[in-house]
Amino acid sequence: MTHALPSSQPTAARPKPAEFLAFAVLAALLAVAPLAIYPFFLATALCFALFAAAFNLLVGYSGLLSFGHALFFGGAAYVAAQAAKVWAWPPELALIAATAFAGALGLGVGALSIRRQGIYFSMITLALAQMGYFLALQAPLTHGEDGIQGVPRGKLLGLLPLSDDRAMYYFVLALFLAGLLAIHRIVHSPFGAALKAIRENESRAISLGYSVDAYKRVAFGLSAALAGLAGGAKALVTQSATLTDMHWTMSGEVILMVLLGGMGTMTGPVIGAIFVMAIPEVLNRIGGPNFSQWMTVIQGAIFVICVLAFRRGLIGELAARARRTL
């Protein structure tokens, strides 16, 4: 069979080099950032950025909108705090425990929630996360409204004390970059390819023999584990684990971060998280405490403007513009 081919065939965009460039620039900027900005604030922001990136792995690359990711972030923070304070574990072990806990919890929550689709899926994740919240509120282990306070940061591998904010920041930066690389690898792996096929056309993927629920479960577990790493790191940075991180508004906030930055992009969630974190700081500096009463309103307005003007998020829109001009 011979058929003439049309002369102009569109070819697939290969954005990989641009992605690595963006990663390198981001890493370099973050490495020198403590010169200009408080390392404590930066370290906290990076924890949220990793949380957003982990959430994006699920919503952006698997098409599953979880409304209960605070459960993994906040839950893992309690585990890390408990391990570091009560059991006196070194920070690296506390973080491994937090990550493993969130991952296992994620597999369980995923197994229950992905039986339903769309809004029902989101509602199940929300309901399960709320159960976790009330558990944390009531259980003696988590100390209710007080949370776990005075968590020691300890010494990394028994050598490097993390009590210094700068040392803590660079440790969190290393975790953050490792987390981003892990997400990049997951997205660009055989598993990632399968996920992409499932998101593109689920029925077709099923007809090719993919047990799509199993893939979604694993994606959910991986996303939850990385969210747990972020939550654990935040517990060490702020030396506390509190109910705030488990509250449903935290699940909402991470959605906001990812949407603002750009769903399904590598750096978008990071930019979105830093943006959301920076707004209150900047407003505080401009207008003082009076101004900050209007925080929620201003945040809401920014969100509405961004979603209307940049539907693909800040980074998503930039990437689309760049591709068009190329």
Binding site: R185, I186, H188, S189, P190, F191, G192, A193, G209
Partner: peptide, 18 residues
């Protein structure tokens, strides 16, 4: 490839490069 990959397994390998 999506079909070939599924048939030969390894579609859960999230730690390997594509």
């Amino acid at each position: 490839r999506a079909a070939l990959q599924r048939r030969r397994g390894e579609s859960f390998d999230f730690w390997r490069s594509d």
